[in-house]
Design a protein around this nucleic acid. Sequence first.
DNA 1: CTACAAAAGTGCAACGACTAAACTTTCGAA
DNA 2: TTCGAAAGTTTAGTCGTTGCACTTTTGTAG
Lengths: 187, 187
Amino acid sequence: MTEVIGRRERKKAQTRQALADAALALFLERGYDQVGVKEIADAADVSVTTLFKHFPSKEALVFDQDDDIEAALVQAVRGRPPAHTIPDALREHMLRDSADGGPSDEFIRLIESTPTLRDYARSMWMRHETALARAIAEETGAPEGDIACASLARFALASRELILAHPDRRRAAEEIFARLERGWRTE
Amino acid sequence: MTEVIGRRERKKAQTRQALADAALALFLERGYDQVGVKEIADAADVSVTTLFKHFPSKEALVFDQDDDIEAALVQAVRGRPPAHTIPDALREHMLRDSADGGPSDEFIRLIESTPTLRDYARSMWMRHETALARAIAEETGAPEGDIACASLARFALASRELILAHPDRRRAAEEIFARLERGWRTE
DNA sequence: CTACAAAAGTGCAACGACTAAACTTTCGAA
DNA sequence: TTCGAAAGTTTAGTCGTTGCACTTTTGTAG
């Protein structure tokens, strides 16, 4: 039941993908605010209402990978090499994701130059904070709502933008996570 | 020329205040999404257009103190007692502002329970990050865009929400800033 | 005191994001 | 084969927000 996905769900995923692809192409070409929702729907050959069944907002069209990103983040902590501390694992994850398979420069430029998208990206990352905090708490044996775990999770995610914006990403990540490690070790 | 403010600016400030007051009262009474912009304008006895001359968005009506907040934040760092480190000063500022003169529980509840306002609040605080980072850099003699200063500023502001949400704010603030201090000392 | 320009405010029409409702089409499973 | 659920459509709206053309207020220079 988990492996066999019917034609139905395939079509749904296809529509969703067509929407996200069309949207990104148009946004990159003409800028976020210069593209209307109607245009995107037309390009993907669906109605505006259908578009909003797949995505809760215009902004969400840009961030369709949402779920995968959260999974990868939690996995980075849970499946880290035994010798690595949690800050180590998070630093590596940040670097990995900002390197090859990660977002293109164009994409980053689109987001950073559009206030709406910048805010949305920030709150999207923050939305993953809970999951990350829980993973950290479980890995370290701390209680559920532990403030040290919550703050580490929040700061790690808050550092992402800073690292992406820095000319030398590796150095920036190392500096920040070295300091976080110094403050958060012993657990 | 700086001290004497004419009747004109007084009236303007008065209108602005009337709008912010009317908005907050209505929001607290019936909830953010249940109040329309038109109603607020009517309550303050101005037109909708005028409302948008004073505030750039509906959300901004809730956060009219914006400028004062940034000034207080920078002042906390610049005017700290000689014996205090920067994390010390920031911790004290956070506690001071979350204690007496700060936002009421009602107000916090309004914001936390309204996604739009939560996001707006976050990005409002982040908007002050640049000013804070510059103040820290100048106080420590670091170069303008120094990553350590930028990250400390970001994390300090990112911790605010965490502290406000915690049942024992003092303990939360002390825990977080003790760790930040350990990681960011030597400068 | 008066005349005048800038600033503050008004009313209206419109745009764009988003939603509710009632409906049709398409699958998938019994 | 049939039948219900899910996907999609159309229509007609609500709501925040802006542009425009206009009136009123207010500080100031003559």
